[in-house]
Design a protein around this nucleic acid. Sequence first.
DNA 1: ATGGTTTTTACTGCGTC
DNA 2: GACGCGGTAAAAACCAT
Length: 332
Amino acid sequence: MSERTFTTTTNRSRSRDRQSRTGTKQTETETEHDGLQCPECSGNVITDDEHGETVCDDCGLVITEDSVDRGPEWRAFDSAEKDQKSRVGAPTTNTMHDKGLSTNIDWRNKDAYGRSLGARQRQKMQRLRKWNERFRTRDSKERNLKQALGEIDRMASALGLPDNVRETASVIYRRALNEDLLPGRSIEGVSTSCVYAAARMAGVPRSLDEIADVSRVEKSEIARTYRYVVRELSLEVKPADPEQYVPRFASSLDLSEESEMRAKQLLKNAKQQGVHSGKSPVGLAAAAVYAAALLTNEKTTQAAVSEVADISEVTIRNRYHELLEAEEEMLV
DNA sequence: ATGGTTTTTACTGCGTC
DNA sequence: GACGCGGTAAAAACCAT
């Protein structure tokens, strides 16, 4: 094999380096790759694959650097994140709050030469370590929070949620952060869950599908994270009440106040009859809106309702029959 | 994993404008 | 003929076990 081509093709700066530093340039090309000699001190040359450097073992002269680093450049904490990153292609170090540049103090009580430290020095290092850690984590949390709040705001706007929902979502997120719920979960996922929870608690629920549309996270992950957050923070989120969807649907369909009231009434009756258990709240709400429109002779189609509620027409049909039946039961 | 329930998809038939 | 509506079967999604 030709050592010459290796040296000339892989790295130009390498030979330039060597020349500028030593003036000798033939020494290396004539020796085997492994048995290289340092042009400076004639010591053994070793290659450090991890950092892509070739250095002299004796004097530490870096002979080549910046060769290709084949090691992983980023970490993923769960499979979803891994997918996300690999899909994007370029590894992002921005996902680390400090781009991995913050100071780290070694835990060993040795100085730079490997000598042990005296008792006094050891205590000092202990203190430094403690404070470094404090600043670092505080800093990390703040950046984390900043990013999450940005996301929350973005999603809330996209969903047309009022300000107080954003407030609640932010508060929930802060709590999650303080309770160390984040590790192992993506910021995006948790902030999405917070929005979802906040919307429900404020009585202006959005369906999981709507949420998933504006989030960068899979629906399943949102659901999982949401359950987790609710459980850990013991938030009080009652099962979504179908009535809460009614105003939104009614207004996007340009229905009158009257039909809105009718729809709510229908749902109340249904609730008393116990028709609604196990059925999706959104479906019931959609059906109620449709049924109410019929009763008040306002023009709507099942297709239109199905559109705004994101529910199939079949479901609307099934539900609204049940609603009307429940209504008759009440009168008897 | 499995089985039961709910929702969706896709298709068909009926009446009306 | 297009449209709104109703119904059905099978597939898919969901949930508790």
